[in-house]
Computed example of a mutant assay.
Amino acid sequence: MASTNTKDPLQGITLENLLTALVDYYGWEQLGKMIEIRCFQSDPSIKSSLKFLRKTPWAREKVEALYVTSITT
Rank of each mutant, 00 (worst) to 15 (best):
I13D: 15
A65D: 10
A2N: 10
M34K: 06
L19I: 13
A59R: 01
E36F: 02
V68R: 04
S70E: 15
I37M: 13
E36L: 02
K62I: 01
A21I: 00
Q11W: 02
F40H: 03
Y67K: 12
P9I: 12
C39E: 06
D43R: 00
Y67G: 15
Q30S: 03
R38Q: 05
V63S: 12
Y67H: 14
W28N: 09
S45Q: 11
G12Y: 05
L50C: 11
I46S: 15
I13V: 15
N17I: 00
A59I: 02
K7Y: 15
S42D: 04
G27T: 04
L53D: 07
K62D: 04
E61G: 12
L66W: 11
T72Q: 12
I35Y: 13
V68C: 03
N17C: 00
S45A: 02
G12W: 14
E61M: 01
L19P: 14
P44L: 01
L18F: 00
E36A: 13
G12H: 10
E61L: 02
T73W: 07
K55N: 10
E36D: 14
L31E: 01
T73F: 01
R60D: 02
E61N: 08
G12K: 14
F52S: 04
S3M: 12
L19G: 13
I46C: 11
F40S: 07
F52K: 05
G12Q: 14
Q30F: 08
Q30E: 14
D24Q: 13
P44I: 07
I46E: 08
D43N: 13
T72S: 03
R60Y: 04
T20P: 07
T56N: 11
M1H: 02
R54D: 07
E36M: 01
S45R: 09
R60T: 09
K55G: 09
G27R: 00
K33M: 11
I35K: 10
L15P: 11
Y67L: 07
K47G: 10
S45Y: 07
N17T: 06
C39T: 05
V63K: 06
L19K: 06
E64W: 04
Q30V: 06
G12E: 15
I37R: 07
T20W: 12
E64H: 10
K33Y: 09
F40E: 03
L22I: 00
Q30R: 12
L66T: 04
G27L: 03
T72W: 06
R38H: 05
V23F: 00
L31S: 11
S45W: 05
S70R: 09
T14V: 13
M34A: 08
L50N: 02
I35H: 04
L53H: 02
L22Y: 06
Y67F: 15
A65M: 09
T72Y: 09
R38F: 08
M34W: 03
L10G: 14
I35W: 10
S3Y: 11
L18Q: 10
R38C: 01
P44V: 00
Q41K: 00
I37Q: 02
P9F: 09
A2I: 08
K33A: 06
I13F: 13
W58K: 03
V63E: 02
T4A: 15
S70P: 05
I37C: 02
W28Y: 01
